[in-house]
């Protein structure tokens, strides 16, 4: 079972988060301020740290940069009520792996924690990605499903690459917009859905099994 440490001074928020994550199958611990959180995190053994930015005693940036200085590479999801570009950059520069602005939708949190907790398994630099019948050559930039080659536009290729790297996980629209397009805002219309459905028509059309799934209320998932 994946172990998660929640370092958050808002007890109600922390409790709600822990309940939701436990529901999703994670084992959660909680620390109520930065110093306690750092001490807990230093014991190691956690798969993901969820760190609030603004806390008493020691703020989130300090906690993360201290851990990173000590050589601790545990994935960190930074939580903050501040959504400005500069704040996000601060968090990421301190060594956080991802950044989520409060208030967040729960599926968004789960999807990001999931992405972070599995990230370490794909540590090695791969030249090909393989998910079920789908095979992507990152050097030649070609994609095959079974025997047939699939012709993708550059953005579709990036989108599929991201989905393949997170195969079996739910990824949200916001995650895709952030990681594939590098925009940090919520588009008001369903722009991402359209891109996904184009990609889906290319990789799933003519096959019996649909690999690119829509996850209700969350986003999408690429199944092997």
């Amino acid at each position: 079972m994946m172990r998660i440490l929640i370092i958050e001074d808002d007890l109600e928020a922390a409790e709600a988060m822990a309940r939701g994550l436990s529901e999703a199958g994670y084992d959660c611990s909680h620390a109520a301020d930065g110093a306690a959180g750092l001490a807990e995190a230093q014991k190691r053994g956690f798969d993901v740290l969820i760190v609030d930015r603004m806390m008493p005693k020691m703020n989130g940036v300090e906690v993360v940069s201290t851990l990173r200085r000590e050589g601790d590479a545990t994935p960190v999801l930074f939580l903050s009520a501040l959504g400005e570009v500069a704040d996000r950059v601060d968090g990421l520069q301190a060594g956080a792996d991802d950044y989520l602005v409060k208030p967040y939708a729960f599926p968004e949190l789960i999807a990001r924690v999931e992405a972070l907790s599995r990230r370490r398994e794909t540590g090695a630099v791969a030249t090909t990605l393989k998910v079920g019948e789908l095979e992507m050559n990152l050097i030649a930039r070609t994609v095959h499903r079974g025997a047939s080659e699939i012709d993708l536009q550059p953005r579709e290729f990036q989108l599929l690459e991201f989905m393949m790297r997170h195969a079996g996980q739910s990824v949200t629209r916001t995650m895709l917009l952030e990681k594939v397009w590098e925009y940090h805002f919520d588009p008001q219309t369903n722009v991402i859905d359209v891109h996904i459905s184009r990609l889906r028509s290319k990789i799933d059309k003519g096959f019996d099994r649909q690999m690119l799934q829509t996850v209700r209320g969350a986003g999408y998932r690429l199944d092997p």
Binding site: R155, W181, Y183, P187, T189, N190, V191, V194, H195, S197, R198
Partner: peptide, 10 residues
């Protein structure tokens, strides 16, 4: 444009 073009087409 690249982001929105498919939506328009749709």
């Amino acid at each position: 444009a690249e982001l929105y073009e498919p939506l328009c087409e749709d």
